[in-house]
Design a protein around this nucleic acid. Sequence first.
DNA 1: ACGATGGATAGGCATAGCCTATGGAGCTCC
DNA 2: GGAGCTCCATAGGCTATGCCTATCCATCGT
Lengths: 289, 289
Amino acid sequence: MELHQLRYFCAVAETGSFSRAAEQSHVAQPSLSQQIIKLEEELGARLFDRLGRSVRLTELGKIFLPRARAVLRELEAAKGDVVERKDFVGGPVTVGVIPTVGPYFLPRVLTSFSRKFPQVRFTVVEEITPVLLDRLRAGAIDVAILALPIRGHEFETKPLLTERLFAALPKNHRLAKRTALSLRDLRSEPFLLLRDGHCFRDTAVAACDRARLHPQVIFESGQFSSLLSMVGAGMGVSIVPEMAVERKSQCRYVHIADEQATRTIGTVVLRGRSLTRAHQAFLSHLHRD
Amino acid sequence: MELHQLRYFCAVAETGSFSRAAEQSHVAQPSLSQQIIKLEEELGARLFDRLGRSVRLTELGKIFLPRARAVLRELEAAKGDVVERKDFVGGPVTVGVIPTVGPYFLPRVLTSFSRKFPQVRFTVVEEITPVLLDRLRAGAIDVAILALPIRGHEFETKPLLTERLFAALPKNHRLAKRTALSLRDLRSEPFLLLRDGHCFRDTAVAACDRARLHPQVIFESGQFSSLLSMVGAGMGVSIVPEMAVERKSQCRYVHIADEQATRTIGTVVLRGRSLTRAHQAFLSHLHRD
DNA sequence: ACGATGGATAGGCATAGCCTATGGAGCTCC
DNA sequence: GGAGCTCCATAGGCTATGCCTATCCATCGT
């Protein structure tokens, strides 16, 4: 049983004539006749009585007609649904973000995007980079925002912004009034850093390495705000990205002028994964500058 | 969009693999791939993400899946409905019958048939022959029971029974004690006959013609029982078919022995019209002897 | 690095649906 | 009542399309 057979059948039922049905269906009358006959053979029953002049549905034909129409109606609904939704910017979007970006960057972007596309429902997952990448692979996350570069060519990355790093110092620190410094200037300071696993810890440590600095870490935490409180209390110094700089904290922030003392944030999606219009719109909203 | 494409799509969605879906669908994997691609092209959107190892539904695929299933479900329902009902003896049957047969013959047949096939719902139309034939042509009547022969080769007729004709005489009539008579014996009698239009009137008149008898008709009616009451009252004589003979009436009935003084009842259906199992069963019930 | 797995691509083939021409039955009109 | 028309069925040929095998290419696991 094929769809065009059902269409022909309905056309004959509607027009009451094979010829008119053929015309309406844009096929030759014999073609339509053949298909109706085939359909009848498959069902094992006549659907029409051919009575010289007129063609009439048999009892079984009358039963079959609404069912055939239902099939075609469902088909149109299926087609229409997809065609309609494929250009619709809406539905669920799950964004993954690393903790050192989440609180500083996402809220602003999400609110401005939601104003433009209120139909899009966001879910935000805040996890460290390797977890986010796993979730991307599994399809649990649509877009991730994290520090580049990352390894794995199954991902498509695109840089969003590169920010400078800052030294967070107690207010009364000897370097607090400087407008810039080098990591080497922090040679003898006790360090407060993020816990292992956070990629910004790696960024900071790598910068230190390049400066031949082996920081003495006296405190570790999972979020900047804890570190900065401790710094404000005079326990030591820390390194933070620009977006984590708190204007009205107890700390002073001095730009670290070392070469490559930066962090690049970018978007990551799974390569080969098809994106909805909502995903695409969100991505281009992020990269809109 | 074709049905096999929907089937393939569902198979891939279920198995999560083109290869397994192809196997399950009994086609080669490339064939299935091609059809999925065609489907995606027609919809203008990817339905699956091909991610090296695994295949996953896209957002649109997830939307499309239940709709595709709905189409296939409707299709199966349509097929099943017809296949189920085509062997089912039930549903409506409309029987047409002429007035001179209706009250004597049908009740007995309908009750015995309904005992066998209680699912069949009967509608009985009692009309004169030309009306019944029109209704047959229009499909408003499925089977007609009337006097043969009829004209028109668009009908299929089959004789049911041939009955003798009887003279209906008042009790004290001079011929009332005879066991048989000839129409010529009624030469001088006043006749009571059915109204024009009733085919049995034609049957009676034709029999009289053959007997060179030109009856003086003093009363006409649409039903035998009226005629027979009048005959019982001594107003004249009449001619009735065997099935109209009333055992406990005021009349005497004497067999008319003339050649061809008979009436043949038969079934009529529209040639080329397909009959349901209920129609077929009813016809063979009628002709069961 | 290698083979195994899984999907896409290429090219050939056969079927199936479409076409035109024609047949045959029924209806209309002169 | 016969000629012509209408309408569905049949016949025969053509083409498109879906299927096949062989092969390619990327990924994944050993």
